[in-house]
């Protein structure tokens, strides 16, 4: 794997929790993509999110770690599961893919990967670390959120309202004649 190669070549990576958690993240992400059954995909995705949350904790972003678990693993994924159960999609419904399509997809994925990795290779030369290590604490974030980010915070209200109305609109059954 690319990542293990990189890890080995880098002398400063001896922090085993990072390695373990990263492996979990990547493997579960791969499982999401390749699994035949949507339900397993969802479960794997939850695992991915949990492991990403662990990363957040390690990165001193405790607030986001919690939000990630609550919002993603808790809400969004449950929604996914709920819809899956509702639609009864447990059985395999996807047609067999032509192999060439898989090759094309992998090539483009790998290509992008290489380009982006190349952009990141000598990253340490370009950016300097900051000194403030407490940015991820709830207090700091809260203060920012309700001062500088007040406008976008309130605007998310519009977003949610429209999403809610839209979801209800699409979800409800109606007898009314079609509009056009």
């Amino acid at each position: 794997m690319l990542l293990t190669l990189l890890l080995e070549t880098r002398p400063n990576v001896q922090f085993w929790p990072f390695i373990v958690v990263s492996f979990i993240t990547i493997l579960s992400a791969l499982y999401v993509v390749t699994s035949k059954k949507p339900v397993y995909s969802v479960l794997a995705l939850i695992v991915t999110f949990l492991s990403i949350s662990v990363h957040y904790v390690m990165l001193n972003a405790q607030f986001l770690a919690i939000v990630n678990i609550i919002v993603y693993a808790g809400a969004i994924m449950v929604l996914f599961l709920f819809v899956l159960m509702l639609l009864n999609l447990k059985k395999e419904t996807e047609p067999v893919k032509h192999i060439s399509w898989g090759i094309i997809a992998s090539i483009s994925g790998l290509l992008l990967l290489f380009v982006l990795v190349a952009a990141l290779v000598s990253i340490d030369d370009y950016i300097q670390p900051g000194l403030d290590r407490e940015v991820g604490l709830i207090k700091n974030l809260g203060q920012m959120l309700f001062t500088k980010y007040l406008v976008p915070f309130e605007l998310t209200g519009i977003l949610f309202l429209s999403a809610m109305v839209g979801a209800v609109l699409l979800g409800k059954r109606e007898k009314k004649e079609e509009l056009s």
Binding site: L7, V13, I26, L59
Partner: peptide, 19 residues
């Protein structure tokens, strides 16, 4: 302990898996 670049590689890899 871990260089920033490893985190970036990790996230780029995840991104490409998703893509």
């Amino acid at each position: 302990k871990v260089g920033i670049s490893n985190y970036l590689f990790l996230s780029v890899l995840l991104f490409c898996i998703g893509l």
